Simulated scan of single mutants.
Amino acid sequence: MTPAPADVLAAAAARGWSIGVAESLTGGLVVAALVSVPGASAVLRGGVVAYATDLKASLLGVDAALLAERGAVDPDVAAAMAGGVRRATGADVGLATTGVAGPDPQDGKAPGLVYVAVATPERATVRRLDLPGGRAAVRAGAADGVLSLALEVLARG
Rank of each mutant, 00 (worst) to 15 (best):
P3E: 11
P3A: 14
P3S: 12
A4Y: 00
P5C: 07
A6C: 15
D7T: 11
V8F: 05
V8R: 07
A11S: 14
A11K: 06
A13C: 13
G16V: 06
W17E: 14
W17T: 13
S18T: 15
S18H: 10
S18N: 05
I19E: 06
I19W: 01
V21E: 00
G28P: 05
L29K: 03
V30L: 10
A32D: 06
A33G: 12
L34G: 10
L34M: 03
L34D: 03
P38V: 10
A40L: 09
A42P: 04
V43C: 10
L44W: 00
L44S: 03
V49Q: 01
A50D: 03
A52V: 01
T53W: 02
D54K: 09
L55Q: 12
L55V: 00
L55R: 13
K56M: 07
A57E: 05
S58P: 04
L59N: 01
L60S: 02
L60R: 01
L60K: 01
G61D: 08
G61A: 07
D63R: 09
A64V: 14
A64G: 12
A68Q: 14
E69W: 06
A72W: 00
V73I: 13
D74C: 13
P75C: 07
P75R: 11
V77I: 06
A79G: 15
A79N: 08
A79W: 00
A79Q: 02
A80G: 10
G83Y: 02
G84H: 04
G84N: 03
R86K: 11
R87I: 11
A88D: 04
A88N: 10
A88H: 01
T89R: 13
G90I: 02
A91Y: 08
L95I: 05
T97G: 06
T98W: 03
G99A: 11
G99C: 09
G102S: 08
P103R: 12
D104M: 14
D104A: 15
Q106C: 13
G108C: 13
G108S: 14
K109W: 00
K109P: 10
A110W: 00
P111A: 06
G112Y: 03
G112N: 11
V114F: 11
V116H: 05
V116L: 09
V118N: 03
A119N: 05
P121R: 02
E122P: 09
E122V: 14
R123P: 08
V126Q: 08
V126Y: 02
V126T: 15
D130H: 12
D130P: 06
D130A: 15
P132L: 08
G133K: 00
G134P: 00
R135G: 09
R135C: 10
A137I: 02
A137F: 05
V138D: 02
R139N: 00
A140N: 01
A140I: 00
G141L: 08
D144K: 02
G145D: 11
G145E: 07
V146D: 01
L147F: 06
L147P: 10
L147Y: 08
S148C: 09
L151G: 12
E152K: 12
E152I: 06
R156C: 13
R156H: 05
R156N: 06
G157V: 10
